[in-house]
C-alpha cells in the first residue's frame, strides 16, 4: 500500500511533442490558464521520439509519474510518430504494472496546439492520479554524472 499523504506534491516528468502538445501547453500559458506546478516538461520534436527507456529512467530518478503527450491520432506532424508512441506506451504500461508500478503513474494524452484548456485538464488528472498512489519509491534512485 502506497503511503498516502494529503500534502504530498508529486513530481511528474512530461514528454511533449513540439507541434501539438508543447504548443497546446504554450497556449495555456498565453491564455493564462492556471494549473498545478507539479509537471515539468521535456520538449521532443515528436512523441515517437520517446524511448520507453526514458519512462523507466524518470521513475528511477525520482519522478513520481510520467506523462507523454502528442498530436491527436491522424494529426502527427511526422505522420506516424504518435502511433508508435501509443504502441510503445501500451507495452510499457503493461510491463510497469508487471513490475508493480501503479498504472496511474504513467499516462498518455492527445493535446493539440489549440487545446490549452485541455492541457490544464490533463495536468489536473495526472496530478490527482499520481497523488492517489503516493510517492514512487519502488525503484532505487541513482544519480549519474552525465
Amino acid at each position: 500500500m502506497a503511503e498516502k499523504n494529503s500534502d504530498f506534491e508529486p513530481n511528474i516528468v512530461a514528454f511533449l511533442c513540439n507541434w501539438c502538445s508543447y504548443a497546446g501547453a504554450d497556449l495555456a500559458g498565453t491564455s493564462r490558464i492556471q494549473y498545478p506546478s507539479n509537471v515539468r516538461v521535456i520538449r521532443v520534436m515528436c512523441s515517437g521520439r520517446v524511448n520507453p527507456l526514458f519512462v523507466m529512467n524518470a521513475l528511477q530518478q525520482g519522478a513520481d509519474g510520467v506523462l507523454i503527450s502528442g498530436c491527436h491520432p491522424g494529426d502527427c506532424h511526422y505522420m506516424q510518430g504518435n502511433y508508435y508512441a501509443r504502441r510503445r506506451f501500451m507495452l510499457m504500461r503493461n510491463f510497469l504494472e508487471y513490475l508493480g508500478v501503479e498504472p496511474e503513474r504513467v499516462r498518455m494524452s492527445w493535446v493539440s496546439a489549440s487545446e490549452g484548456a485541455k492541457w490544464k485538464e490533463v495536468i489536473e488528472e495526472v496530478v490527482s492520479g499520481v497523488k492517489s498512489v503516493g510517492p514512487m519509491n519502488k525503484f532505487q534512485r541513482r544519480q549519474l554524472n552525465w
Binding site: V13, I42, V44, M45, F54, N57, Q61, W146
Partner: peptide
C-alpha cells in the same frame, strides 16, 4: 537524433526528477 540524443535527454530527466 541530433539535439535530441539520449545523452542529451537523459540528463534532463535526471534534473527534472529531483
Amino acid at each position: 537524433q541530433r539535439s535530441f540524443k539520449d545523452i542529451q535527454i537523459l540528463p534532463q530527466i535526471q534534473a527534472l526528477g529531483v
